[in-house]
Nucleic acid binder design. Structure first.
Lengths: 229, 229
DNA sequence: GAGGCTAATGACAGCCACTGACAGTTGACA
DNA sequence: TGTCAACTGTCAGTGGCTGTCATTAGCCTC
């Protein structure tokens, strides 16, 4: 039986880490292999032009197996994004409470851009992740899903912000309005970055900071105390 | 041959209107019938659960014919939205130049809510349009497309705003930032309205106004003259 | 360490959205 | 009225995705 080079080597075990059984490790390897093959194919020949059969074939499993790991092509395309986003949420949660809402969000993003590298690299090469990001921005079907996911994120962030500011997210419009404005800017920068020439992390970091500067002075204020309802 | 009740009666001709040929009228009727049948089915039994075959059957045409009028189920779902959006764009264009960007946008939306009624009613009952709007908000696949379309709209609006304020949309971040913030608020209100109890036009109008009030004071300023780049 | 249990997989059939190709039908117009 | 072009129906095929069932292969117990 051909195992395929996509199946990556087992990483050395850290001491204290519980070694999962063979079954579990095999599953993980299959998933990783499928994910990498999918992203590689997507970014090489285009999302729509890549068939699930091709992905499965590249890893030498049946088409049915692909669907047992991913709900669809879509889910594979966003698997890494999923991880990045949960890191961002953590970063927001760890912001000191004295920072204003937009200040906290701003610092959390910029910090995230500095840290994703390591987390992503454990699964796929970061360069592949960057290519995938641009693919998402330029593929209508994926862009649509990306935006829906962003909206879901914003709802979670709004709840976080409302909580840290001690206001009610359902009666006070400010958390959602602030997050919507913030999210809007993030999307603009993401799009401009994808359309631009410089694909470095530094470039999107700089762009983000510059655009956020335009909202900051206008919206960055402390909500403690007053009620604007 | 069964013509199907979905085919609506020809409207009385306004004087001065050029009467299109029989072929053209027939096409229009088929398209309208397909659209109405589609929306009716979507809102009744759900978007995913209605097949194109069902829509075609309801109008008594072949499935292939449906695809000659609409690129896919999706396009049918957004046909009315298309019209509403172009009306909104017109409203923005007609705002007097002395109004600030956010003031102009705000007035254009509120005015649009007052006027869509007549335009929509020429194609489908308003109540069906309202139901469709809610369907879009609550169907993940449609919501995703809705958001992508919103982004496209925002790009067009940003260009309009930049133009009326006399700034360059590619070097000055403010048009896109302002429109992103505005669009974010619009989406929040749309979602809250869809999730709420009151489905009247008045309700969404009020909600929109209330939420926009929270961005207004913070962002509504006149850009003439200064350069914030 | 043999055998039973069960998760993981493969093979296959089928649904639905969508497309291309070709042939038949019907307005438009000379 | 006959020709042309537009519209339509039919049919075959592709690709995403799901349900089902038999087979394989870790895992665990005695």
């Amino acid at each position: 039986m051909k195992t395929g080079q996509q199946i990556r080597e087992a990483a050395p075990q850290h001491p204290g880490t519980v070694v999962p059984g063979l079954r579990e490790r095999k599953k993980q390897r299959t998933r990783d292999a499928l994910l990498r093959a999918a992203l590689e194919l997507f970014t090489t020949k285009g999302y729509e032009r890549t068939t699930v059969d091709e992905i499965a074939e590249a890893v030498d499993v049946s088409q049915r197996t692909f669907f047992r790991y991913f709900a669809g092509k879509e889910e594979a395309a966003f698997a890494v994004q999923d991880m990045v986003e949960s890191h961002f949420l953590d970063a927001v949660r760890q912001r000191p409470p004295h920072e204003g809402p937009l200040e906290a969000l701003r610092k959390a993003v910029l910090e995230s851009w500095d840290n994703i590298g390591d987390a992503v690299e454990e699964i796929i090469p970061i360069e592949l992740h960057m290519r995938t990001y641009r693919l998402i921005e330029s593929t209508p079907a994926l862009l649509a899903v990306h935006l829906r996911r962003s909206e879901e994120m914003e709802e979670r962030i709004a709840a976080l912000i409302a909580d840290r500011e001690g206001v009610d997210v359902d009666t006070d419009p400010r958390p959602r309005v602030a997050v919507a404005a913030f999210g809007g800017v993030m999307r603009v920068t993401g799009r401009l970055w994808g359309a631009g020439e410089d694909y470095s992390v530094a470039a999107i970091r700089e762009l983000t900071a510059r655009y956020l500067d335009q909202v900051g002075p206008a919206l960055m204020e402390n909500w403690h105390g007053e009620d604007r309802r």
